[in-house]
C-alpha cells in the first residue's frame, strides 16, 4: 500500500503535464469490422495532433440504440451509410459532416488452406456443413453475403447451412474456431499489409453485391470538440487512407 500515494501522485502529474497544450479527447464508436485499422489510425492521430481518440468497438445497430439514448460518443464510424444518415435526419448527427471513410470488401474465407478456391466452386459443391454469415438483418456484410449468393443462384441451396454471427467479428470467430468450415467475412479481418494472414479466401467481386459504404459522422455531443473535427480531417488524409487501403478496403 506504500506505493499507492506515490502512484496516485504520478498519475495526477502525468495527467497534468503530459498533455500538450490544446489536447482534447474524443469518444469514437467504431464498427467492429474497422477495429484493426482504427487502432493504427488512432495511434497515428495521437502522435500527429496530440489529441486522444477513445475507441469503442461494436455493432452499428447497438451504437445507434446507445447514441439515441444518450451515450457519450462524439463520432460514429458506422459499418453502413444508412445509420449515419438516419442519425442526421433525427438531429443526433451534425449535418454536413458525413462522408464515406471506407468501402468494405467482402471475402469468402476458410481457416483451412486450400479449402476455398479462387472461383468459389466450393459453394457450388456444397461440401461443408456450416456457412457462417453475419446476420443480414443487422450487418451490411451479412446483407452483401446474401446478395452475392442470390446473384450466384445459390441462396436456396445454401440457406439451410447458414450460421449467423451477430456482427462480423462473431462471424469470423465461427470460422476461425473451425466450427463453420467457411464464411463470408470482411477482408479487413483476414488481410494485413496487403496479403492474406492465413487459410484460404475468395475475394468477392464488387459486382455481385451493393457496395458496402461505411460512413462517418460527427454526433451532436462532439459538435464543439476540436479533437472530433481534427479526427474527421485526419481520416480523410493520405496517411489514414494508406492504412485503410492496406487492410483491404477500397476508397
Amino acid at each position: 500500500m506504500k506505493t499507492m500515494p506515490s502512484l496516485l501522485t504520478g498519475l495526477v502529474l502525468t495527467a497534468v503535464f503530459s498533455a500538450p497544450a490544446g489536447a482534447d479527447e474524443v469518444q469514437v464508436a467504431v464498427a467492429a469490422n474497422f477495429t484493426a485499422p482504427m487502432k493504427t489510425i488512432a495511434a497515428d492521430f495521437e502522435k500527429a495532433t496530440g489529441h486522444k481518440a477513445q475507441l469503442a468497438f461494436g455493432a452499428t445497430g447497438k451504437f445507434y440504440a446507445q447514441i439515441k439514448n444518450g451515450a457519450p460518443f462524439e463520432i460514429l464510424l458506422a459499418a453502413d451509410d444508412e445509420t449515419p444518415a438516419k442519425l442526421e435526419r433525427e438531429g443526433v448527427a451534425v449535418p454536413g459532416t458525413r462522408f464515406t471513410y471506407a468501402i468494405g470488401q467482402l471475402a469468402l474465407w476458410s481457416a483451412k488452406p486450400g479449402f476455398v478456391d479462387d472461383k468459389a466452386d466450393v459453394l457450388k459443391q456444397g461440401t461443408f456443413n456450416h456457412l457462417s454469415i453475419a446476420n443480414p438483418r443487422l450487418a451490411p456484410y451479412g446483407a452483401a453475403a446474401v446478395e452475392t449468393l442470390t446473384q450466384l443462384g445459390l441462396l436456396g441451396a445454401l440457406e439451410s447451412k447458414f450460421v449467423q454471427g451477430e456482427n462480423i467479428a462473431q462471424t469470423y470467430q465461427f470460422v476461425s474456431s473451425g466450427n463453420a468450415e467457411l464464411g463470408f467475412v470482411a477482408l479487413s479481418q483476414i488481410y494485413a499489409d496487403g496479403k492474406l494472414k492465413g487459410g484460404s479466401a475468395w475475394i468477392v467481386p464488387g459486382n455481385l453485391h451493393n457496395p458496402i459504404r461505411q460512413d462517418a459522422a460527427v454526433l451532436v455531443k462532439g459538435k464543439d470538440n476540436p479533437a472530433a473535427a481534427a479526427l474527421m480531417e485526419f481520416l480523410k488524409g493520405e496517411k489514414a487512407r494508406a492504412v485503410i487501403k492496406s487492410y483491404g478496403y477500397s476508397l
Binding site: G61, K62, S132, N135, R137, L138, Q164, G165, E166
Partner: peptide, 23 residues
C-alpha cells in the same frame, strides 16, 4: 455457440437482441 438458426438455436433472448439491434 448458437449461430442464430431459426427453430434450432434462435431463442427468445437472442430474438430480442436481434430486434433491438435492427432498431
Amino acid at each position: 455457440i448458437g449461430g442464430n438458426i431459426p427453430d434450432k438455436t434462435r431463442v427468445v433472448s437472442v430474438q430480442i437482441y436481434d430486434h433491438v439491434e435492427a432498431m
